[in-house]
C-alpha cells in the first residue's frame, strides 16, 4: 500500500537521494560555533587553536592498497552508496564515521527545527497551527497534524477569502529545510502558473506542524474547489531538502488517499522548484477541468497508489 502522507514511511521508495550533493552541504558544519572550545592545560578555560571542523575534503577511499586501484576509483565514482570507504579494524575510518554523523545531523535538524518566521512574513502567508503543540507530539501523533481547532477555522475564515477555486497551503511537514530552501522560488512560480491558467486563487496559508491531510480540513472550512499543500518530506541521509506537492479536488475531511495526487522530489537536485511551480499549476488546471484528482485522474497516480 502506498499513501501520499509524510508520516507514512513504509513504502516510500521514490524519494531518490542525489548523493552528489553531499559535498555542497558540508559547508554547514563551518557555521557551528567553536568559540567555546577549551584547552586542558589552561585549566580548560583558555582559548586554543583547534583544527577547522569543516569537511570540504573529499572522502578518502580508506583502502590503502587495493587490488585494483582503477576499478576501485570507478566503483566509488559511479555509485550513490557509500562504497570503497575502507576501515579501521572492523570499524569505519574516523572520516567516514564523522561524515555519516554529519549527514544524519543535517537530516535531524531538518526534522526538528521550525521554519524561520521571517521567511513566512516575506512570502506574506497567513500562519496557523494544527492541533499539535510541539515537535515531539507532531512526530508521535499524525492524527493531530491533520486537524485544526474550531477557533483556528474561524480565524481562517476571517483572514482568508472564502470559496476560492484554488487554496494554496504550505507546511513544514517533516523538513523545515525543504520549505526554507524551496518555497521562496516555488510559491511565486506556482502563483504565476495558476494565474496563467486563469484560476482564482485564495489567500495562501502556512500551517505549522501539518500533515498532508490537513488540506482536507482547511479546504473544507474555506470551501475551496481544490487544495494544494507544499510540504517537507522525511529527509534522507543525503538530502534533507526534498518537498512534495499533494493535491485534492473537492477537499473534505476524510477524503481517501485514492483522491490525492502528488508531485514529489521537488528540490534543486530533483525537480527544481521554479519548474515544479509550473508543473503543479498544470496539474491543478487539469484537475479543475476534469473535476477530479488522484486515481480518478491519471494513470501516473494509479501507479503511485499501488
Amino acid at each position: 500500500m502506498h499513501t501520499p502522507d509524510t508520516d507514512r514511511t513504509d513504502t516510500n521508495r521514490t524519494d531518490r537521494t542525489n548523493r552528489t550533493e553531499r559535498t555542497d552541504r558540508t559547508e554547514r558544519t563551518d557555521r557551528t560555533d567553536r568559540s567555546n572550545r577549551t584547552a586542558t592545560h589552561a585549566g580548560g578555560s583558555g582559548p586554543v587553536a583547534l583544527p577547522d571542523g569543516g569537511t570540504d575534503r573529499e572522502p578518502p577511499s580508506g583502502i590503502r592498497s587495493p587490488r585494483d586501484a582503477d576499478a576501485l576509483e570507478r566503483l566509488i565514482e559511479r555509485n550513490p552508496s557509500r562504497l570503497g570507504v575502507g576501515r579501521a579494524g572492523p570499524r569505519p575510518t574516523t572520516e567516514t564515521l564523522l561524515r555519516f554523523r554529519q549527514d544524519h545531523g543535517l537530516a535531524r535538524d531538518a526534522v526538528l527545527t521550525m521554519v524561520d518566521p521571517a521567511l513566512i512574513d516575506d512570502l506574506d502567508l497567513v500562519t496557523v497551527r494544527t492541533l499539535v503543540t510541539e515537535k515531539d507530539e507532531y512526530l508521535a501523533r499524525p492524527d493531530l497534524g491533520r486537524e485544526i481547532s474550531e477557533e483556528t477555522a474561524t480565524s481562517l475564515r476571517e483572514q482568508c477569502r472564502v470559496g476560492p477555486q484554488i487554496q494554496v497551503i504550505a507546511s513544514d511537514g517533516l523538513s523545515s529545510t525543504a520549505i526554507e530552501t524551496n518555497l521562496p522560488d516555488l510559491l511565486p512560480a506556482l502563483m504565476d502558473g495558476l494565474a496563467a491558467h486563469d484560476l482564482d486563487v485564495g489567500t495562501p496559508i502556512f500551517v505549522e506542524f501539518g500533515r498532508v491531510d490537513v488540506m482536507d480540513a482547511i479546504g473544507e472550512e474555506l470551501e475551496a474547489d481544490c487544495c494544494v499543500i507544499l510540504i517537507g518530506e522525511r529527509p534522507g541521509l543525503g538530502s534533507a531538502d526534498s518537498l512534495s506537492a499533494y493535491m485534492v479536488y473537492g477537499p473534505e475531511r476524510g477524503a481517501p488517499t485514492a483522491k490525492k495526487s502528488v508531485i514529489s522530489n521537488i528540490h534543486a537536485g530533483g525537480l527544481p522548484p521554479v519548474e515544479a511551480g509550473a508543473t503543479i499549476a498544470d496539474r491543478i488546471a487539469e484537475m479543475c477541468e476534469h473535476q477530479a484528482s488522484g486515481l480518478e485522474l491519471t494513470e501516473d497516480d494509479r501507479e503511485f497508489q499501488k
Partner: peptide, 20 residues
C-alpha cells in the same frame, strides 16, 4: 554499505558492524 540505504532512505547496521 556504511549503514546507509540510499534507496529505502533509512539507516541500518553496516558491513563494518558485521565484522565487529
Amino acid at each position: 554499505p556504511m549503514g546507509d540505504d540510499v534507496m529505502l532512505n533509512y539507516q541500518s547496521n553496516s558491513y563494518h558492524d558485521a565484522a565487529a
